[in-house]
């Protein structure tokens, strides 16, 4: 519906072009063209089932393996379509990290959870590996809480800590773009606040794309907001403008709580 919009001077990190997705012939995303500005937080909002997760999972090709899925259109990253034939998924996902709605730490120690990525991707060991792990845990605002028990199981942490561990695990791979699918929806208010602060902080260095059901949260943490409905991109713009001065009546209704 809305053509890809980019603000002048704002560099684009990633862009979808006429992206459509269907599951077993049933469309979930319809010709979505959307640009994600670099080093900023973009929020994706919309009613349940409107295709937010589908869109997010297209950005690192996590939808590929779902049986019956059909994807058309392009997703541009560094001037290349990530759906082109010869794209290397490992390289793509090294650059585009992801955390999920439910924290999913691996059944291994805190250290191993974070170390796995850099060890496999960059062959780091010993001191260098420890430094990367510490750095990632610090960026995820978890270091102070776990620095004395790095060898404890990652599953022994609280839900909020587990989610930050998953964020640290993602950061340790050194991505530039971070995808987060409702990262707070399984968490208590205090953990949620911590993660929100973290997202704001990460938005300074990374391109963050976050799906959320919580409109206040989107307003608090994002610079840009995209509003999806029935698989279509209804509105996209600077968060303040989308919330205070939406151009479309559907957006207005949704934000005023008159829908969904």
């Amino acid at each position: 519906m809305v053509a890809a919009m980019t603000l002048p001077k704002q560099k684009v990190a990633m862009e979808t072009v006429e992206l459509s997705v269907s599951y077993n012939g049933k469309p979930a995303l319809k010709r979505v063209s959307l640009a994600f500005p670099a080093n900023a937080v973009t929020a994706l909002i919309g009613p349940s089932g409107c295709g937010k997760s589908t869109l997010l999972r297209c950005l690192n090709r996590m939808n590929d393996r779902i049986p019956g899925v059909e994807i058309t259109g392009k997703v541009m990253l560094n001037g290349e379509d990530i759906y082109a034939r010869r794209v290397n998924l490992t390289r793509l996902r090294r650059e585009v990290g992801m955390v999920f709605q439910k924290p999913n730490p691996f059944p291994m120690s805190i250290f191993e959870n974070v170390a796995l990525g850099p060890r496999l991707h960059y062959g780091l060991r010993g001191r260098a590996l420890q430094e990367v792990v510490e750095d990632a845990l610090r960026k995820a605002a978890l270091w102070d809480e776990v620095k004395d028990e790095l060898h404890k199981s990652g599953l022994a942490l609280s839900g909020g800590q587990q989610q930050r561990l998953c964020i640290a695990r993602m950061l340790a791979v050194q991505p530039r773009i971070l995808l987060m699918d409702e990262p707070c929806s399984a968490l208590d208010p205090i953990s949620t606040q911590k993660i929100e602060e973290l997202i704001v902080e990460l938005g300074k260095q990374y391109t963050v794309i976050v799906v959320t059901h919580n409109l206040q949260q989107a307003a608090r943490i994002s610079h840009y907001t995209g509003f999806l409905m029935y698989g279509e991109l209804v509105e996209w713009g600077e968060t303040r403008q989308v919330f205070e001065n939406p151009t479309r009546p559907e957006t207005e209704d949704y934000i005023r709580g008159r829908f969904g």
Binding site: R93, F100, G117, C166
Partner: peptide
């Protein structure tokens, strides 16, 4: 093995 763990590994770029 929970699918969420497998997804976590794949999303990390593991083969």
């Amino acid at each position: 093995v929970p699918a969420a763990l497998i997804d976590g590994g794949l999303a990390l770029g593991l083969s």
